[in-house]
Computed example of a mutant assay.
Amino acid sequence: MHNITIIAGARPNFMKIAPIIHAIQKAKAEGFDLDYRLVHTGQHYDKNMSGSFFEQLEIPEPHANLECSGGSQAEQTANIMISFEKELLAHPADIVLVVGDVTSTMACALVAQKLQTKVAHVEGGIRSDDWTMPEEINRLVTDSITNYFFTTSETANENLKKSGVNDEQIFFVGNTMIDTLLKQQPNFIQPQVWNDLNLFEGNYIVMTLHRPANVDEESQLKDMIDEIIANTQDLPLVFPVHPRTAKILERLHISHQRLHMVKPLSYLEFNYLVQRAKAVITDSGGITEEASVMRVPCLTLRDNTERPETITLGTNELVGTNPKNMKPYLDKLFAGNWKKGNDIPLWDGQTATRIITSLKELFSNN
C-alpha cells in the first residue's frame, strides 16, 4: 500500500486538496494500492470551517487536527513542526503532499525531509519576488527541499529550472483550485445579501482586502476606499470583511451608502457573487485565479503577483498599492474596454487526475 499524507493549514488549502482526495478515492476504487491521511495543522482557526464546509465541498473530515493556531510566525512554525513530527512518526507515509504557501506548507516539508520522507509540492514554483511577504519565504524554503513539483504554469516551471530543479522532478498539471471551482460552479448558493441589497448581474462590485500592506496602514486604507467609492459611479460595493479589518474600518469611520460591509461568506456564496459581478477588487491571489476562469474583470491592489498568467491570459490587472492608480483602471472598466481573457493552459478541471496519474508512475518506478 502506498500512503500519502496530505497537509492542509488554512481554508484555501482545503479547496486545493479536495479534488486530489477525490482522485485518490477513484484510483483506489479502480484497484490501485493507494491510501491517504489528511492532516489539518489547525494553523488558521476559521469558524466558517464547520461540518457544512466539508459537506459542501465533499471533503472528508481530517484524520488529525494538530490545533496549532495562534502565536508569532516563529512560534507557529515551531508548534506545527513539533506536532507534525509526532504525527508522521506515528503514521509513516511514502510521500508528504503539501499545497500552496502557508506556514504549514513549509513547516511540514521540513519535518518530512528530516524524517527522510519524500515531499511533493502542489503549486510549486510560483514566485512574487517580494521577500516582505511571509508566503514568498514559505515558497522559497519549501521548494528548496521538495522532491516533486506539481505546477500551475509554464512560468512556475521556468522558475524551478532556473533554481536548479531537474525536468524529471517537475509535473506541469494545472490548478487544483480550478478543479474545485468548475466542479462546484453548479452548486453556488445565492447569499442573503443578494436580496437584501437588490443586486442583479453586472450591477455591483465585489471587494476583498486583507493583506497587512493594505489594511494596517490606516491612512492608506482610507485613501484607497475613498478612491474606489469616487470612481465606481452608482454601483453597490459588496465588501465581505474579515473581523480584524472591520475593527480598523470602524475606527476610521469609513462608511458610505454604496459601501456594504458584510460578514465573511462561504465559498459557494462568495463565488456566486463573483461570477455575477461587474468586477472584483481584491488583494488575494486565489480570487484572481477564480475571477479569470469565470471571465470577471479583476483589479488587484498589489505591486506584484505570483500568478502572472492571470494577467497575461486572464482578466486580472495589477493596479498597485497607490490609491491614485485606481481611477484609470476603473475608467477603463466603465468604458467597456476591459480585456475578455483567454483559457489558461491545463486549468480545465482535470488537474487532480493528472497529479494522481503522476504519483502512480512515481510509485511504480521507485
Rank of each mutant, 00 (worst) to 15 (best):
Q25G: 12
D33W: 11
Q169N: 15
A291V: 11
W194P: 00
S255W: 04
M177T: 13
C298H: 14
K324W: 08
V122D: 01
V280W: 14
S364M: 12
N342D: 13
V122Y: 05
V173F: 06
K86I: 12
I228Q: 05
R244D: 11
A27K: 13
V296P: 03
A8K: 05
W131T: 14
V119P: 01
I95H: 10
E75A: 11
I126V: 15
R307S: 07
K247T: 13
T117S: 09
T146N: 07
F334N: 09
Q76S: 12
K332E: 13
V280P: 04
L181T: 12
K278H: 12
V319R: 12
R258G: 02
T245W: 13
M294N: 11
D216S: 07
H253E: 08
G336N: 09
Q184A: 08
V206R: 12
F270S: 08
V102M: 11
N13H: 14
M224P: 06
D226W: 01
D35V: 06
N48L: 15
M133L: 14
L88Y: 11
T151F: 03
D216I: 04
E269T: 07
W338S: 10
F172W: 09
S50H: 05
K340F: 03
N214T: 05
D35E: 14
N231L: 07
P345C: 05
D223K: 09
L160A: 09
P345H: 10
D35T: 14
F32V: 05
Y329C: 06
R258Y: 07
N48A: 08
L197K: 00
F53P: 01
I80R: 13
G341M: 06
V141H: 00
E227R: 10
P328L: 05
I356V: 14
K247N: 12
A352Y: 02
K86R: 15
A18R: 05
P19Q: 06
D283R: 04
E168F: 10
E250I: 00
Y36S: 09
T142D: 02
D303P: 09
M15R: 01
G42L: 10
F200S: 12
Q25E: 15
G42K: 11
F149W: 04
S144G: 03
L330Y: 06
E201W: 10
D234H: 14
M207K: 02
Y204N: 00
N159T: 08
N271F: 15
D143G: 02
